[in-house]
Nucleic acid binder design. Structure first.
Lengths: 170, 170
DNA sequence: ACAAACTATCTCAGCACTAAGCTACTTAGC
DNA sequence: GCTAAGTAGCTTAGTGCTGAGATAGTTTGT
């Protein structure tokens, strides 16, 4: 059974036989798969009244050491979005009473972001469902294949420079 | 050298040891990698005055059989975006003189989208650079590992139902 | 022939994101 | 102490996308 990317490769072979389009076999599938998984995860987020952006912030705070407190810059570095996007995410979450911003006493320019009790409870409820969805999405792969895949993806990430040090800064 | 996802897994292990978060090793890396690759590809598109959306339409038309003519619905099915997004993409491209819409004589509701000469020339110029960027992104992998990765990704796509038939319709 | 159901494409209001820039604060160098 | 350079987080204007819906055309069933 050919998938969509096989079809694309065949078309390019016919229309531009001069080009070696073989990387599309990987990159096209990565892109498609990522989008499908994003959509699947979004459904689980929505069941908890969250979207991907909100979940991302709440989860990042939750997985940090107690008191689950981070600066906007730390959230930005963890999230692969711009500082403007983080500001907007926090605006929305603060408006919903899921996080608070408090001044950073040791740096007059900065704030600290923490989970409210409600935010903490919500992420703790959503997380098991999120993880279950992730398990389900990978059901077709054996444990061995999953490990192999994770290793390959990690090698690619490292080759693209994704080795950020995420130590919290005071 | 631990990557960011390793760090996340370690954090969850400490904060929620009750959960088996192992799928994140794959899904987190898929997501990160996809975003990094998207950003890298976007730089190449930009060098040709294109964005991802525009490139997607032009490429989809270009790889279809001559006369490289498709309906908006076909473009939508190939692109993983909504019909509204396709309309907007076409609006932008038509405004730039890169595609045309002509009525579909056999169905009064529909139009056909084709490349203009300029659109054809632009995508034919951009494509080799795009493919070169894709090659570069996968440089860290041997051919064998790339094949293995493509196969694994394909299995996952199929398991998620991504087996769309993309035959053109009259 | 007619009506109901379906469909192709566009429209609309709203969404999360971006790049560029701004303001106020902090650090480095003298 | 002072100034230049750097930085934290927010603001702004614009971007491409979404879901829901609208209009007009096509198909199905009687």
């Amino acid at each position: 059974m050919a998938d969509h990317v096989d079809f694309i490769l065949k078309q390019w072979g016919a229309q531009r036989p001069d080009l070696d389009v073989s990387p599309m076999a990987v990159i096209g599938r990565l892109s498609r798969l990522s989008r499908l998984i994003d959509a699947e995860l979004a459904r689980t987020f929505a069941a908890h009244g969250l979207d991907r952006a909100s979940f991302d912030v709440l989860a990042t705070l939750r997985r940090s050491d107690p008191p689950h407190r981070l600066t906007p810059a730390e959230l930005m570095r963890a999230s692969m979005v711009t500082s403007g996007a983080v500001t907007q995410r926090l605006d929305r979450l603060e408006e919903r009473g899921l996080v608070t911003r408090t001044p950073n006493e040791s740096d007059g320019r900065g704030v600290y972001v923490t989970l409210t009790e409600e935010g903490f409870a919500l992420i703790d409820r959503a997380l098991p469902d999120h993880v279950a969805t992730e398990h389900r999405v990978l059901d077709a792969l054996s444990a061995e294949r999953r490990e192999e895949l994770a290793g390959t993806l990690r090698d690619l990430l490292e080759s693209l420079g994704d080795v950020t040090d995420l130590s919290p800064r005071a």
